[in-house]
């Protein structure tokens, strides 16, 4: 309940406040979104597995976003930013998919 409230609150705040993202941060926004989604799906799966933990969720979210952004930043500095972004998206995408599959098995037992 708190979780849903927090999510809705965040979305509403984002839509109404329309915070301006500094230009230097803009390339990392899509990666941060994918990393956040990974954390959310991981948390959802843990919830259904019955092992959800608030602290782990928040830490994994923050760490995911930071590490993903760091990898892309490093890639940008090395001149392979696009490739590393693809790498991050692929890895996180696979994780999201397998977590989503696990969630699906829990919800529909199929």
């Amino acid at each position: 309940m708190i979780a849903l409230l927090g999510l809705v609150l965040g979305v509403v705040a984002g839509l109404f406040l329309e915070p301006t993202v500094p230009t230097w941060m803009q390339p990392y926004l899509p990666i941060a979104v994918v990393a956040a989604l990974d954390a959310v799906f991981g948390g959802l799966r843990a919830l259904l597995d019955g092992i959800f933990d608030d602290r782990v969720f928040v830490v994994s979210f923050v760490a995911n976003v930071l590490v993903a952004a760091l990898i892309v930043y490093l890639g940008d500095q090395l001149g392979v930013g696009a490739q590393l972004s693809t790498g991050v998206v692929v890895v996180l995408g696979i994780r999201i998919f397998s977590n989503a599959a696990s969630i699906r098995r829990h919800l529909f037992s199929a």
Partner: peptide
């Protein structure tokens, strides 16, 4: 725990909405 969770999810929502906007 609950406060942390709320803050984390607000951050997630904010991120998603910001990215969309």
């Amino acid at each position: 725990g609950p406060v942390l969770l709320l803050a984390g999810l607000v951050a997630v929502g904010l991120l998603l909405a910001t990215a969309a906007v």
